[in-house]
């Protein structure tokens, strides 16, 4: 698809659709789909009211159509001009492994946050992250990770009195429940 459209571009010297321009065409395409879906969904489910008392659907419909317009604008801009251009660099090899590992650890941290609770979840996350980013000494990672995780949690929960999930250590958790 992108190869054909590059032929349409007027200035041949700049007609190469590089990574960023291709990426923005994709972003514009996604935005276009989002805008169309959003407009349709608003039209069919949100009340529009009357001119006297406009309903909750009026503004979102304008926004949905606006999304379609700016998406088309983004695509056209990327196709016909090179205001934004260049290659997108993604990490490779070792770096890619680190980034993916961190992303997975982050998602796991969030997914288990409420179940494990602030103390356990953040310590486990810190240990994993230190292993992914830092040295290979597991003893060091476990000690540092637990220390930082517990310190951060204690600072917020105990010193500042912020209410955070207690998870397993809470009164209804598996571990905390044993000691009540």
């Amino acid at each position: 698809m992108t190869r054909q459209s590059s032929a349409d571009s007027e200035r041949d010297a700049r007609s190469v659709l590089d990574g960023k321009r291709r990426g923005r065409i994709v972003a514009g395409g996604l935005g276009l789909l989002l805008g169309l879906w959003f407009s349709w969904y608003t039209w069919s489910t949100v009340p529009f009211g009357t001119q006297d008392r406009p309903g909750a659907g009026v503004f979102p419909l304008v926004v949905g159509i606006g999304m379609v317009v700016v998406s088309v604008m983004t695509i056209v801009e990327a196709l016909r001009t090179d205001q934004v251009s260049g290659e997108i660099r993604f990490p490779t090899g070792e770096k890619r492994r680190t980034v993916l590992l961190m992303a997975v650890a982050m998602v796991a941290f969030v997914a288990l946050y409420q179940f494990l609770g602030q103390y356990i979840a953040s310590s486990l996350f810190m240990i994993t992250a230190l292993a992914a980013l830092g040295t290979r000494s597991w003893v060091r990672n476990v000690v540092y990770g637990t220390a930082i995780g517990v310190a951060i949690s204690a600072f917020f929960m105990e010193l500042l009195g912020v209410r955070l999930p207690e998870g397993l250590l809470g009164p209804t958790g598996v571990i905390g429940g044993l000691f009540l």
């Binding site: 946050y113 951060i152 917020f156």
Partner: peptide
């Protein structure tokens, strides 16, 4: 960096949670 970055991530998660006690925000 290997300590600062994950530490910030942990704080970002608990900060997002604490504003409204909502997992959705996280």
């Amino acid at each position: 960096k290997s300590m600062l970055m994950p530490g910030i991530l942990v704080i970002a998660v608990l900060g997002a949670f604490s504003t409204r006690n909502s997992m959705l925000d996280v």
